[in-house]
Structures are given as structure tokens and as C-alpha cells.
Amino acid sequence: VGDQVLEIVPSNEEQIKNLLQLEAQEHLQLDFWKSPTTPGETAHVRVPFVNVQAVKVFLESQGIAYSIMIED
């Protein structure tokens, strides 16, 4: 199991704000291929294997929908 690319769908401005804060966490080494800008629009982010669980827990705790787009 390696890195994953998640497709994330924020449903409101609050969730977009939370994702932008997540993007700013440099220690997570997230690679946003497509940043969140509009509710209902997908964002794509590559998550290093060591941080996959932490990111998924965060998304679930914020009620942000996501799916695994690419499993490496």
C-alpha cells in the first residue's frame, strides 16, 4: 500500500476553509492537484501513505465527502 489520491467534495464554504487549512499543514506533505474553490466541486489531493489515515479521520470528523481516486 502506498500513497493515495483522494477525490474530495466539499459541500459548503466552511468545508472549503477546512480543506485550505489542511493544505497549509506542511508536515502532512499533501499535494493538491486541484484545490477546493467552490462547494460541490471536486478537489484532488495526493496523500503520502504515512498520512492517509490522519487525513481520512480529519475529513470524516468534518463531514467532508471523499473517495479514493487512485490507490498506489
Rank of each mutant, 00 (worst) to 15 (best):
E26I: 12
Q15S: 03
V55S: 00
I8M: 05
L20C: 06
V5K: 05
I16E: 01
P48I: 04
L30H: 01
E7T: 13
T38F: 11
I68T: 05
V55M: 07
A65C: 08
E7A: 15
N18C: 15
R46V: 06
Q21R: 13
P36D: 02
N18T: 14
V50A: 14
V47G: 01
V50Y: 09
T42V: 14
S11M: 14
V52I: 13
S67N: 08
T38S: 09
N51P: 00
S11D: 09
Q53T: 10
V52S: 05
G40Y: 08
D72N: 11
L20G: 05
Y66K: 00
L59D: 00
L28W: 14
V50T: 10
S11I: 14
L6A: 01
G2E: 09
I70V: 12
L22S: 02
V9D: 03
A65Y: 11
I64Q: 01
E14H: 08
L22F: 09
F49A: 11
V45F: 04
E7D: 05
V52K: 04
E26W: 13
L19M: 04
V1K: 12
P39M: 05
G2H: 11
K34I: 09
G2K: 06
E60Y: 05
K34F: 05
F58Y: 11
E60A: 07
V47I: 09
V9Y: 15
A24D: 07
I70N: 11
L19T: 02
S35D: 05
H44A: 07
S67A: 07
L59G: 00
E60W: 04
P39D: 02
T37C: 05
G2R: 05
N18H: 13
K56L: 14
E13R: 07
H27W: 14
N12L: 02
I64K: 00
I64C: 01
Q15K: 02
M69V: 11
S67F: 09
L28I: 06
V52L: 14
P10Y: 03
L22P: 03
T38E: 09
T42Y: 07
T42D: 02
F49Y: 11
T37D: 05
A65S: 09
Q25I: 10
E60C: 05
I64Y: 04
V9S: 07
Q21L: 13
V50D: 09
W33N: 05
P10G: 03
G40E: 03
V47C: 03
E7I: 13
L59P: 00
H44V: 15
L30T: 03
S35W: 13
T42N: 04
N51G: 04
I64P: 00
G40V: 01
Q4C: 14
N12C: 04
F32Q: 02
V57R: 13
S11V: 13
P48Q: 05
K17I: 10
A54V: 12
V9F: 13
M69I: 09
E26Y: 14
V50I: 12
W33I: 13
I68Y: 05
F58H: 03
A54I: 12
H27C: 08
D3W: 14
F32C: 03
T38R: 09
I16P: 00
S61W: 06
I16M: 07
N12Q: 02
G40I: 02
L19R: 00
E60F: 04
I64W: 02
Q21V: 12
Q53D: 12
S11T: 11
P39V: 11
I68N: 03
Q25V: 09
E7K: 11
F58A: 03
I8G: 00
S11E: 13
L28T: 03
V57Y: 14
A65Q: 12
T38D: 06
V5I: 12
Q4W: 15
S35K: 14
A24L: 11
F49C: 10
E26P: 08
S35M: 14
V9W: 14
V47L: 03
V45M: 11
Q25Y: 09
A65G: 06
E26C: 14
I16S: 03
P48L: 05
R46D: 02
K17L: 12
I68E: 04
A54L: 11
W33A: 07
E26F: 14
E41P: 03
I68V: 12
N18P: 02
L59I: 02
K56D: 01
E41I: 09
E41V: 10
I8Y: 01
N12E: 02
A65K: 14
F32T: 02
V52G: 03
P48E: 03
A65N: 09
E7S: 14
E60P: 00
K34V: 08
F49N: 07
L59C: 03
V50F: 10
I68Q: 04
S35N: 09
N51V: 08
Y66L: 01
A24W: 13
N12D: 10
S35C: 14
M69W: 08
P36L: 05
V50G: 09
K34N: 07
I68L: 09
D3T: 12
A24I: 09
H44I: 15
V52A: 06
T42W: 04
S67V: 08
L6K: 00
Q29I: 05
I8R: 00
V9N: 07
I68P: 03
A43H: 07
V5D: 04
Q15L: 01
P10E: 01
L59K: 00
Q53P: 10
K17R: 14
S35H: 13
S67T: 13
E71R: 05
G63F: 05
Q53G: 08
S67P: 00
A65T: 12
G40F: 09
L20F: 11
H27D: 11
V52P: 00
S11R: 11
E26D: 10
L19S: 01
I16G: 01
F32R: 02
I64D: 00
P39G: 04
F58Q: 03
G63Q: 07
V45K: 00
K56C: 09
I8D: 01
D3E: 07
L19D: 00
A24E: 09
L19E: 01
V50R: 08
N18E: 09
P10K: 01
Q62I: 09
V1I: 09
P48A: 06
S11C: 13
I70L: 11
L22W: 11
D31H: 15
G2A: 08
V52N: 04
E13T: 08
G63R: 05
I64L: 04
L22T: 02
Q25N: 13
